[in-house]
Nucleic acid binder design. Structure first.
Lengths: 140, 140
DNA sequence: ATAAAACAGGACCTTTACATCTGCTTTGGT
DNA sequence: ACCAAAGCAGATGTAAAGGTCCTGTTTTAT
């Protein structure tokens, strides 16, 4: 449904939001989020390319969010690593369906739209503040 | 987002619903739905395994829906070939998150739930009857 | 019986996602 | 200047999804 890479990316940014604005080392993030360290490095590079995180080399360097947790939605992160692609034109290239999708593809796109909306409606900050649930990535 | 196989399966069952209850040959379905014939054969075998379609060999055989279009939802078809998997337990196996998901995974599951609901709310029959849209798989 | 129509199923190939490894470059402290 | 800490980049490996092909087996009509 959602790719493994999306799951990893979300864990990472949540960890960063929890510790903002202190830079976190990739290895630290990998350990607490249970993501393969070498692969996390690639995922983070993808996030940097879309200006979700900043990466700093050298002693005392590490990873930080490029924006405040209140300004980053789950959708931003998802779209950075594995963009949600809406159905905007007929997948069969039927001329008459071009813009006005058939009932099948309209329904499919509606479902995708619902998911998109759910992701857009939550910021990282909200994830940290919800008092009603357990804290992401933290046991106990 | 949704697998190619899901897209193919939906095209096939829509075609079947349009022509129900007349059996359709796999090659016919493949042609009008623009799905690779050999691969469609595999997809249909998956649908048969979940009792979505019936396959009949020999002269005059072909593929038919196992139920009335009014009794089959999009979700039935999707789940038959590529089941939507809700998040029910903590992916990190944190003990305290086991049943009560953290905010991150709760939101992710909510998004998946929205998509699931969108798919469950439409039957094949409704797809064929919507007067407001163009007809699935048909040009003009 | 036989032949033709249709699906069945296994072996195989290709592409993409997931993941690792190794050596390099940048950075800051001494 | 030097060294250790961190990320960087590219090659490589592995597994799953998507797709093809070939040879069977079942069914019906004649």
């Amino acid at each position: 449904m959602l790719s493994q890479t999306v799951e990893y990316a979300l864990r990472a940014v949540v960890h960063l939001a929890q510790h903002a604005p202190k830079p976190q080392k990739t290895a630290e993030i990998a350990a607490t989020t249970q993501v393969p360290p070498a692969y996390l490095s690639k995922v983070l590079q993808g996030l940097r390319a879309k200006d979700i995180v900043k990466l700093q080399r050298g002693v005392g360097g590490g990873v930080t969010l490029a924006a405040a947790p209140a300004d980053l939605t789950i959708l931003d992160v998802v779209n950075a690593v594995d963009p949600i692609k809406r159905i905007t034109t007929c997948p069969l290239d039927l001329k008459s369906h071009g813009v006005r999708l058939c009932t099948l593809h309209r329904r499919m796109d509606n479902a995708i739209m619902e998911m998109e909306r759910a992701f857009r409606s939550t910021t990282l900050e909200e994830l940290l503040k919800d008092p009603d649930q357990s804290v992401p990535l933290c046991d106990g």
